Simulated assay, not measured.
Amino acid sequence: MTDLNSRYGMNPPHSEVVDACHHIEPRNVLDMGCSNGRNALYLSQLGFNVTAVDHNAGAIQSLQSIVAQENITNIDPRIYDINQARLDADYGLIICTVTLMFLAPDRVETVLADMQESTLPGGYNLIVCAMNTAAHPCPVHFLFTMKEGQLDAFYHGWEMIKYNEDLGTMHNGAQLQFATMLARKPV
């Protein structure tokens, strides 16, 4: 597999996306908050059909340029404001890694509900979100951070493939606590 991320000067795909692909066979996937497309490119090379959305028009144009240059047929980059919570298709996998922190706090619950509704039965949601807890106050001023147990509670009734609230490091080196979840929707 060609490392398109390196070729275009991008960070590697998120480690949780890589790990999830060990459990999930290729299917239609939504990359919410795709930025420059680091996860979308990785998933497309594994055979996933990727809809990649972000509100940043420049990031989407950059990804569209890569898709055209590489003649990639299984990535559909689109400008989309995630705060709207109006997904118009259903997916077998929705990934939302390090994205919720940049949304309007009063929209996050609606966005998560929309993700759940737009996940096919037996499909998966992968979420990684910064936390702000008494033990580990968030050192970065994000618009939104998870509280202890908040993400787990929101996915009540889903099968938890993976769930933790561990310390981690952002790509810029900042150390903080993350809620990380891979959950499967009941069939």
Rank of each mutant, 00 (worst) to 15 (best):
D3Q: 11
L4N: 02
S6Y: 09
S6E: 10
R7P: 05
Y8A: 04
Y8P: 04
N11R: 11
N11G: 07
N11Q: 15
P13F: 00
H14Y: 10
H14I: 08
H14M: 05
D19C: 15
C21V: 08
H22G: 13
H22P: 12
H22W: 15
H23M: 08
I24V: 11
R27A: 10
N28I: 15
N28C: 15
L30I: 07
L30W: 06
G33M: 07
S35K: 15
A40W: 08
L41N: 02
Y42Q: 08
L43M: 10
F48L: 01
N49W: 08
A52P: 00
A52S: 01
A52G: 01
N56W: 03
N56L: 04
G58S: 09
S62D: 07
S62G: 14
L63W: 00
L63Q: 00
L63K: 00
L63S: 07
Q64G: 13
S65F: 01
S65R: 09
Q69M: 11
Q69D: 13
E70M: 04
I72P: 09
I72L: 08
T73N: 13
T73D: 12
N74P: 12
I75M: 01
I75H: 02
R78L: 05
R78E: 10
I79L: 04
Y80L: 13
Y80I: 02
D81V: 08
N83A: 08
N83F: 09
Q84V: 15
A85R: 00
R86T: 13
D90R: 13
D90E: 15
Y91I: 04
G92Y: 09
G92L: 12
L93Q: 02
I94V: 08
C96N: 07
T97K: 05
V98L: 14
T99E: 10
M101E: 07
E109A: 14
E109W: 12
T110R: 13
V111L: 10
V111S: 03
L112W: 13
L112S: 04
A113Y: 14
A113N: 11
M115G: 05
M115Y: 05
S118W: 10
T119K: 10
T119E: 04
T119Y: 11
G122K: 09
G123M: 03
N125S: 09
L126H: 01
A130M: 11
M131S: 03
A135R: 09
A135S: 13
P137F: 01
P139S: 05
F142P: 03
F142W: 06
L143Q: 12
L143Y: 07
T145N: 05
T145L: 06
T145Q: 07
K147R: 12
E148W: 06
Q150E: 11
L151P: 00
D152V: 12
H156Y: 11
E159Q: 14
M160A: 12
M160Y: 06
I161A: 08
I161L: 05
I161D: 04
Y163A: 06
N164R: 06
L167D: 07
G168C: 02
H171S: 13
N172A: 03
G173H: 03
G173N: 04
A179V: 01
T180M: 02
M181K: 02
L182E: 00
A183C: 13
K185Y: 03
P186F: 15
